[in-house]
């Protein structure tokens, strides 16, 4: 065979320093700073920024599982939104059952109520997720067209079941007593619940980051996203890994549903479909399969939609699409393209 194409062995100095791709991450602070003159007033800007971060982090909760599932098994679940709706309704029911805790002025009891609601939502959504994977997704592996149709069909059916269980009326979702209202710092008013959402979102992101980077399980997931066959050829059963990720992704979507319900203080069955659009935009922006990209994308979408919603409310959803188009023109595979083999 020809040796002309041979690659010379690299010496130590040939190796480039690990290029950390900071540019996409920098977009978030850049957007925040650019928005200040656009919004005009500092207190409003601060309020919008916190609202945007809260919304972005809730979107991240929901979207991260979907992007991982896609990366790992090349499965795009168009019915992911159903776990959001399910989580929101389970959250409503749990919170209303814990009326004593939510009405109490004790912050700890309030927090416990939200914790229970989120946990119940995650458990229910995760369990349904396992069933959904078995019935809807597994029979159509590798068949993209059928995958889209079946998961969409699954969503139609599941939405009707939710309607049958909870009824068609929109449900108000009250925030617990001590999480209503805002903290006032000088001129700046920051809603307490949004602050909580930011903290929770960051905590979950940190946990996910550690899991993916510091544990064998996480390394296997990341390796599987890049080259599923090779992970199997090393003797690991990617199937189980996938079911686990699918269930965890559904559970996080359920938790996200509860949080989004509390964020909007209203829950409707449409909440899933409504969020699905944002989720798709976010994971396309981030790069399909990339959790880090999903995080940055979610923050960008959350922030942009709050700023634009204030400056020019008419083009709100359109702004997310515009953001997506701009980013894809810059990086056609999204902010952090996943290296596939």
């Amino acid at each position: 065979m020809s040796m002309s194409a041979a690659i010379a062995p690299a010496k130590v100095e040939d190796l480039p320093a690990a290029p950390r791709d900071w540019l996409p991450i920098l977009l978030v602070p850049i957007l925040i700073l650019l928005a200040l003159p656009l919004v005009g007033s500092f207190p409003t800007w601060a309020t919008l920024t916190i609202a945007g971060l809260a919304m972005g982090l809730i979107i991240f909760l929901v979207a991260s599982g979907l992007t991982l599932v896609f990366g790992l098994m090349d499965v795009m679940n168009f019915g992911h939104g159903i776990f959001v709706a399910l989580g929101a309704f389970v959250g409503v029911t749990t919170i209303s059952m814990l009326g004593g805790w939510t009405a109490s002025s004790s912050f700890a009891l309030n927090l416990a109520a939200i914790g229970c609601a989120g946990l119940a939502a995650a458990v229910v959504a995760g369990t349904v997720g396992i069933a959904f994977e078995r019935v809807m997704v597994r029979p159509v592996y590798g068949l993209h067209l059928k995958q889209i149709l079946v998961t969409m069909g699954g969503m139609i059916v599941a939405e009707q079941v939710i309607l049958a269980l909870w009824g068609p009326e929109a449900r108000p979702m009250m925030r617990p007593a001590s999480l209503q209202g805002s903290f006032i710092f000088g001129d700046v008013a920051i809603e307490k619940f949004r602050l909580l959402a930011v903290c929770l979102g960051l905590a979950i992101f940190a946990a996910m980051f550690l899991l993916l980077n510091r544990t064998k399980l996480g390394l296997l997931i990341r390796a599987g996203v890049q080259d599923r066959e090779m992970v199997e050829a090393l003797g690991y059963r990617v199937r189980f890994l996938f079911i686990g990720v699918f269930a965890a992704g559904s559970a996080l979507a359920g938790l996200g549903g509860t949080m989004f319900g509390l964020y909007q203080e209203l829950v409707t069955t449409a909440i899933g479909a409504q969020m699905m659009v944002l989720i798709f935009i976010v994971i396309i922006i981030g790069g399909l399969g990339s959790v880090g990209g999903c995080f940055v994308g979610a923050l960008l979408v959350g922030l942009a939609s709050n700023y634009i919603g204030f400056v020019a409310p008419k083009v709100n959803l359109f702004s997310s699409i515009l953001l997506m188009v701009l980013i894809l023109l810059w990086r056609p595979q999204g902010l952090f393209p996943v290296a596939k083999r």
Binding site: M76, F78, H144, L145, I148, M276, V277, F280, I281, I284, P313, K314, V315, N316, L317, F318, S320, I321, M324, P332, Q333
Partner: peptide, 25 residues
Amino acid sequence: RVRAIFFAMITLAVAAAFMTMASQF
């Protein structure tokens, strides 16, 4: 150009945006 699945996702987003626009204007 990118992926067939992309088309499905993007049309979903565009349609949603168009619907909001229609009710806004």
